[in-house]
Amino acid sequence: MPLAQTENLNVAAFDHMPSPEEIKARVPMTERAAASVVAGRKAIMDILDRKDPRVFVVVGPCSIHDPVAGLDYARRLKKLADEVSDTMLLVMRVYFEKPRTSTGWKGFINDPFMDDSFRIDVGMERARKFLLDVCEIGLPTGTEALDPIAPQYYGDLISWTAIGARTSESQTHREMSSGLSTPVGFKNATDGDLEVAINAIISAAHPHSFLGINNQGQSAITRTRGNPYGHVVLRGGGGRPNYDSVSISLAEQALAKAKLARNIVVDCSHANSWKKPEYQPLVMKDVIHQIREGNDSVVGLMIESNIVAGNQPIPADLSQMKYGCSVTDACVGWETTEEMLRNAAAVLREAKGTQERVA
């Protein structure tokens, strides 16, 4: 009597996926890009260690869907980054993976042609090429780590990593974070719970062993050293923002109680702005004011920004898409982005000048 089939009952196919080694051979690291990555990571670590008094700002599109428009944005951001570099380190937000509550476009890696063909092999190679191009422009990059295998393909081009509100509680993502080469920001849970992020920082700081893949794409036992650069990202939740001075003070107390460094990043988007992009400048203004008034725990901010403000649905005819406009969360436009960052830089310069005169 033949054995009953008991595995892969709901799997339609196993298509070939190139190994990380193959993708890296097609899109190899360059000296200029590597220098950008190393400089970006060191600057962020120095900010977290209080060796660099600047604030880092992760700013860019909610998600990348058009590499041409994305590089257009990157070139604009590089000029602005140089302009405000005395007070802020600008890190380009480069998100390829989008967690969905139910269904929807899952991002550039998963579906690069935006037609449900799900050519992950093509998406991964193009994502790596885009990151390489941004790093060659001279910008550090930040992304959200969603798929635990993906960092093997492009993690060498990332300077800062976020773990999202839906995955900060995930053991898989905490273990993965313990082995990442970048500082990692853990977001509070969607209900606003901060303990999830604090436990994630503690967990990721310790060594772990777990199932992963190596550079050749083979299953491997991944053994990590632990990541000492975990920190909290406040993004609001539970029906209210949490960037106000009281919420930040409570976060400081929670970090101190857990014997963790008081490093806080504020996400100006998501629940902190009620997902209304026009509120992001108000959030940033408030937080920068807190820094000017003496807050020393806020080390960074996040902004969802694009060339064109707002967002758009993905049309059946992709040629009808608006250039430089988000297809996921709505963003502030480029002019507003410039204004937000220049205003913040001016306030931080003023605060720095005041501190030097008092000293």
Rank of each mutant, 00 (worst) to 15 (best):
L90N: 03
L90K: 01
L90M: 11
L90D: 00
L90P: 06
L90E: 06
L90A: 01
L90R: 10
L90T: 03
V91H: 09
V91A: 05
V91Q: 03
V91F: 03
V91R: 03
M92Y: 11
M92H: 11
R93M: 00
R93W: 00
R93E: 00
R93T: 01
R93F: 00
R93H: 00
R93G: 00
R93L: 00
V94Q: 04
V94L: 03
Y95S: 08
Y95F: 11
Y95D: 00
Y95N: 08
F96T: 10
F96G: 02
F96S: 05
E97I: 02
E97G: 12
E97Q: 07
K98N: 07
K98L: 04
K98R: 12
P99C: 02
P99N: 12
R100Q: 10
R100D: 06
R100T: 08
R100Y: 05
T101H: 10
T101I: 12
T101M: 12
T101Q: 08
T101W: 08
S102Y: 12
S102P: 02
S102T: 15
S102L: 15
S102H: 09
T103A: 14
T103C: 12
T103Y: 09
T103M: 14
T103N: 09
G104R: 10
G104M: 04
G104L: 03
W105E: 01
W105I: 04
W105A: 05
W105Y: 09
W105N: 08
K106S: 12
K106N: 14
K106D: 11
G107N: 06
G107P: 07
G107E: 04
G107M: 06
F108P: 02
F108L: 15
I109G: 02
I109Y: 03
I109S: 08
I109H: 01
I109M: 09
I109N: 11
I109F: 08
I109R: 02
I109W: 01
N110L: 08
N110P: 11
N110R: 13
N110K: 14
N110S: 15
D111Y: 02
D111H: 07
D111T: 14
P112H: 01
P112G: 10
P112T: 10
P112E: 14
P112Y: 08
F113P: 01
F113Q: 15
M114I: 15
M114H: 10
M114C: 12
M114V: 11
M114L: 15
D115K: 04
D115C: 05
D115L: 04
D116W: 06
D116C: 07
D116Y: 13
D116R: 13
D116H: 13
D116N: 15
S117L: 09
S117G: 10
S117W: 00
S117E: 06
S117K: 03
F118N: 10
F118W: 14
F118V: 08
R119F: 04
R119E: 13
R119T: 04
R119M: 09
R119V: 08
R119L: 13
R119S: 13
R119W: 00
R119A: 11
I120Y: 05
I120E: 13
I120G: 10
I120D: 02
D121P: 07
D121W: 01
D121Q: 04
D121K: 05
D121Y: 02
D121T: 07
V122G: 01
V122E: 14
V122N: 07
